[in-house]
Simulated scan of single mutants.
Amino acid sequence: MSNHKPKKVFMEGAIPPGFIGESIAKHSSKKNIGAHSIFLGQVRNDVIDGKSVTAINYSAYEEMANEKFHEIREAAFEKYPLNCMHIYHSLGTVSSGEICLFVFTSSKHRKDAIAACEYLVERIKAEAPVWGKEVFEDESHSWKENN
């Protein structure tokens, strides 16, 4: 494996659109980048058993999760010719419609950036020790007061 430094993955609450925009803008001056691929995971306003989901509360074993995210990143760098890669995942409460996962890959060519982004998202969903508990419309008020 390469020797990339482990990166901070978790952000408290939703990932702000401005943060996403700034992340993209920071790459405009980097050399050898001809393509970016971005995945944005959003909390769905699902209806489960007749109740609307108003938020998801994300939790993780952070140390273990950070190690797993680093392992996944390193595998992607080995598999694809990437110039840059960023992964951010929410912890805590994220309301419906807000962003909870941001994966951003950059490479010389689009196919590599797209394939790497998809690879990362699939591995994160399958392997990262991050859990989400739905907060329903009828319990969201009392849940927020108790937490």
Rank of each mutant, 00 (worst) to 15 (best):
E134S: 15
I56M: 11
H141E: 14
F69Y: 07
E134L: 09
A65W: 10
E71Q: 08
I87L: 10
Y80K: 06
I99N: 14
P129D: 00
H70R: 01
G18I: 08
T54A: 03
K5H: 14
L101I: 05
R123H: 08
I87S: 09
V135H: 05
F136T: 05
N146I: 10
S37D: 02
K144G: 06
E98Q: 15
F136C: 02
V47R: 13
V47E: 14
G92M: 10
K111P: 03
K51Q: 11
S29T: 13
E137I: 05
W131P: 01
A14T: 04
I124N: 02
S52I: 07
K125I: 10
H70V: 00
D49Y: 00
N83P: 01
K133L: 14
C117I: 02
E12R: 09
V94G: 12
N3S: 10
F10A: 04
T93Q: 08
G18S: 12
S37T: 04
P81G: 00
D138L: 07
I38N: 14
M1G: 15
K26Q: 07
H4A: 01
P81D: 03
V121L: 11
N32M: 05
K31E: 12
G13M: 06
I24T: 00
N57Q: 14
I20L: 14
E71I: 01
L82S: 02
K68G: 00
N83C: 13
D112F: 12
V47N: 09
L101N: 06
I15R: 04
T93H: 02
S29P: 05
K68I: 04
A128P: 01
I15Y: 13
G97V: 03
A116E: 06
G18A: 09
A75K: 11
S96N: 13
K144S: 14
C117W: 01
Q42M: 15
T54S: 06
N57P: 04
K108D: 09
S95G: 05
H4F: 13
K79R: 11
G13V: 08
V43I: 12
H70L: 01
A60Y: 03
I87G: 02
D46P: 00
G13C: 12
P17A: 14
E12T: 11
H86A: 00
R123T: 03
E62G: 03
K8E: 15
A35P: 03
G21V: 15
V130A: 10
E127P: 01
V103Y: 03
S28K: 12
K51H: 11
F69L: 04
K111E: 12
E22Q: 12
K30Y: 04
G132T: 10
H4E: 12
E118S: 08
V103D: 12
N83S: 13
E67T: 05
I48E: 13
M64H: 07
E145G: 13
H70G: 00
L40I: 13
V135W: 01
T54I: 07
A65N: 11
N147P: 05
G13T: 11
E62T: 12
S37F: 05
T93G: 08
H141Q: 14
T54W: 02
I20K: 15
E137H: 06
K7A: 09
E22C: 05
V135A: 09
E118T: 09
D112T: 04
D46N: 12
E71H: 03
K5R: 14
I38L: 15
G21R: 15
I114C: 01
Y119A: 02
K30E: 11
P16F: 10
E22L: 07
H70F: 03
I24R: 01
M85T: 10
I24N: 00
